[in-house]
Amino acid sequence: MDLEAARILGKLIGAGLAMIGAIGAGAGIGIVASGAVQGMARNPDASGMVQTNMILGIAFAEAVAIYCLVVALLILFVM
């Protein structure tokens, strides 16, 4: 295996490994949404407030996945 092929291989494996972090964000968003839906089902009047806070929580959880994505994109397209 020559050096260039090894570099590409390393880049692809690295980008794949970087995206492992998205597992946590996926689980987190699932938990947030499940909690929000339960809350809305019990108290439909508060659904507006619950929805706002749910979107905020999802945004925070998603940020972690986006960091992984940015790292993976950096590895793929910049390095």
């Binding site: 945004a59 998603e62 940020a63 986006i66 960091y67 940015v70 994109l73």
Partner: peptide
Amino acid sequence: FRLFGNIF
């Protein structure tokens, strides 16, 4: 990075 990552 949230905005950049999502849209890129």
